[in-house]
Design a protein around this nucleic acid. Structure first.
Lengths: 216, 216
DNA sequence: GGGACACTTCGGCCGGCACCGAAGCGTGCG
DNA sequence: CGCACGCTTCGGTGCCGGCCGAAGTGTCCC
């Protein structure tokens, strides 16, 4: 249990948790951006980042005078989402702005590299009705063919994986298949980021595309 | 991320982590037993238990002057194992006794309600070859029939679930199916606990039984 | 080359929390 | 009925760790 405790200790801090939350958008952030985001001094942020990198949660990429950090991989995102989902629903937001942002996230968002929120659930439901996945979110044989038609190339990464949604409390599709679909939809302009946040929305083109595929 | 942080904070303590580790055997422990196990005063243990119960990780059951606590369910065990697996291999044990105990756990153990360790991997491999589960550990149609012959009754609980093994670094079978198999093997005397620990071993009867089923 | 900037290291401060022992409460047993 | 036992509550103590600012290093740009 000593190793589990060390991991928990790493996440049991307001500032480090805020860093991880920000990095869940899947992008790389600079140390300065994260410091501002969390409201701490650059020196404080620097120390936290070192600890998170040493703990294997983050990877860093030095470029000139910048230190870019990102989640070390999908497995980190999955861990964070699993813990968030376990911990239960977040307390209700206090301000109107926060409530609106929270509602946008609940409607649809990326979870590192795949779709989550109600949009993720809609996708999952569609895939289920098409027979691409089973109720346990395992990809079926015909499902693999279906995915390949969307340009999917199987890799060594686990094909599908259930990721418990922290707003909907229902598992949604993660893993290689979930990541590929998310990337494809973003590339095609079917799903679009709202501003620079993790929140996303289905565009009119996306609505049409999903209907074409039989997802809606 | 505030909720995730609160959960992490709960696990980020030596004593509370020790409690959770002990409770991973799936039994209910008294406050006194846990205090002794972790080497703290009863008063300290009492406070920790209250926090763990309030955090939803443990459930308690008052009986006379005893306070029994247990993990709140399989989802807690799965979370703990996931975090342990993520954190990587435990540091090498220092003493001979610890090394021997650690080796016994690595050979085979229960993970709350299912089998883990090399024995868990052997089981998974056998189930895979029999076509009961897919490589993603989803139960197949014939697999459900196979399980029913072993007395399995489907319930609302997720049928199967991958649980990353912290000694073997490979997913093994958890979920309702994994729990049923573990219970069945223990009932039949095919798998036996070593002393009162989580470590288990395959008995000669179990070896024969598994061969009969085609698992070996 | 000089100045702005991103980041790091170090020292010191401060708050939170894990811990214990003492005292109190309820239960069970002789 | 009284004592033993398990647990809880409450003060008090001590340490760990998060925080900042100041000073230092390396990078970029003018």
């Amino acid at each position: 249990m000593a190793v589990m405790e060390a991991l928990a200790r790493l996440l049991a801090d307001r500032t480090r948790a805020a860093f991880c939350g920000a990095l869940l958008d899947g992008r790389a952030w600079t140390a300065h951006e994260l410091a501002t985001h969390a409201g701490v001094a650059p020196s404080t942020a620097s120390e936290h980042l070192t600890r998170l990198v040493e703990g294997g949660l983050l990877v860093e990429h030095r470029q000139g005078r910048h230190r870019y950090v990102a989640l070390a991989g999908p497995h980190v995102a999955e861990l964070l989402e699993a813990m968030t989902a376990f911990a239960g629903p977040a307390p209700a937001p206090r301000t109107l702005r926060a409530a609106s942002a929270s509602e946008a996230m609940a409607r649809g968002r990326t979870c590192y590299d795949h779709l989550a929120g109600r949009l993720g659930i809609t996708l999952k439901t569609g895939l289920l009705e098409l027979g691409v996945v089973t109720t346990d979110l395992a990809v079926t044989e015909p499902g693999i063919v279906w995915l390949k038609e969307l340009g999917f190339e199987p890799s060594s990464r686990q094909l599908s994986r259930a990721c418990l949604d922290w707003t909907e409390r229902v598992p949604h599709l993660a893993g290689a298949a979930g990541a590929h679909l998310c990337r494809t939809f973003l590339d095609r302009g079917w799903v679009k980021r709202i501003g620079t946040t993790r929140a996303v929305t289905l565009t009119p083109a996306g609505d049409a595309g999903w209907r074409d595929l039989g997802l809606l």
